[in-house]
Design a protein around this nucleic acid. Sequence first.
RNA 1: GGCGGCAUAGCCAAGUGGCUAAGGCAGCGGUCUGCAAAACCGUUAUUCACCGGUUCGAAUCCGGUUGCCGCCUCCA
Length: 493
Amino acid sequence: MGLRFYNTLTNRKEDFRPIEDGKLGMYVCGITAYDMCHIGHARSAVVFDVIFKYFKYRGYNVTYVKNFTDVDDKIIAKANSEGTDITSITERYIKEHNEDMDRMGVARPTIAPKATENIQGMIRLINALLERGLAYVVDGDVYYSVDKFKGYGKLSGRNLDDMMAGARIDIDEKKKNPLDFILWKSAKEGEPWWDSPWGRGRPGWHIECSVMSQRFLGETFDIHGGGRDLIFPHHENEIAQSEGATGQTFANYWIHNGFIRVNQEKMSKSLGNIFNMREAMNMYHPEVLRLFMLQSHYRSPVDFSDESLTDARMGMERFYETLKKMKDALSAAVDSSDMSAKDLSGKDKEVFERVQALPERFVEAMDDDFNTARAIGYIFDTVRLVNGYMADKEFAPTAESLFVLDEAKKNMRRVGKVLGLFLEDPDEYFEQDKKREAQKMGLDTDEIDRLIEERREARTAKNWNRADEIRDILAAKKVVLKDSAGGTTWKIG
RNA sequence: GGCGGCAUAGCCAAGUGGCUAAGGCAGCGGUCUGCAAAACCGUUAUUCACCGGUUCGAAUCCGGUUGCCGCCUCCA
């Protein structure tokens, strides 16, 4: 069984067949650079980041292109309101975007082109559409004539008649058909412009993706992705433009990620419930956010709420507890470097074999429509297995057992790398988590440390009443203490 | 109005024709611990919104009902 995933074009899961063996071209629609990224952008970025990394994990040579839209009405409006030009707006938000995505553990795409760097290509493509009779010029504007493209609607599963029946289409005098969309927009006073055969103007939104994908990936490429909302009209229009101009299939597979909702509602500016990525990452570790997203299937909607994020945080804690235990055990002065699987027997052998199965199970899950939720379930299985192994009274840090643990750790890290999880040192993770949570709750960490010290003295004197009293005081603030041989540590429960 | 999606335990969530319906969070009982925390063991859906149908067999396929949601306008 090979890799298969859901193709929006056919509405079913299909076996993946790349155009060229071992190679793959993927284009994903990126952001319009006029504002900070929100968690919806983060989900899309994380979904395609995992897909990108998984294809590489499976041995594909992937060219991943994700664009920046750096000219559009919203950018112009923002530039005008700030009394500046569009470039200073887009440069700023592209920089912020990159900063946020880096912090989120999202790998940079192979190529990240900008619309404004491809204006000549757009003009050429529009010309080709005009020559083929698929577009028309009205007063310096160029429109795409949807009636002329017979495949119009094939991606979103609609036809022109159905859409005409919808009552929400604006009538525009210039358009021959209300569904026609703009390819080239003539410039009004004070707007940025480029010279074109139709006068000064700027490109419509959809044309850039047709041009940039074709430029870097060819006329026909493997995968095109983006958020669900882009299916119509954006992706439908891209198909019309690209296939209309080349006569070739545009993208073979279409992947669309589901939306993030906030407390059961759609995220929207009017509801004022937009969470930007930066706020979210200040409130939760980026890996907690990734776990939250990846524990649901990429096509399902997910609900962003304190409860769901707290669940994810607890799950992440479980992973890092185990990673910490393994790390601590592996720091024992026992050398396991000469060991091999042949030296194992009994329990060691059994655990080793089950631990070794993780990458295979991971592939089984991921090959089935990138089922990260199932894959994460398998990692939790491994966590329980390893915890049980270490909790066994018979367990001791021998060359054999450490060899097994090392294998477990490597396998968790290996699959975690694809998901963007477990990349942190466990001690560092808990340290960060403690600070972040304490800050969220407005707790004074010095005060906590002082009480812990007082409790240590009480415990040394076997004054259990006072020790428990301090535990209760802190517990009331959700500070949970953990006593161990090395001293007392705390975390927010 | 048109098109499409979803409904699985207290919550989140995998599973799309057939072994005991993954996994996480929360809860409960036990082991461990001065007490805890973490961890481990056990336990928590005879049942997959509801009603019919197909089938030897369905959470999974078909029809209907109800509820929720998305797109049709910028949108990840």
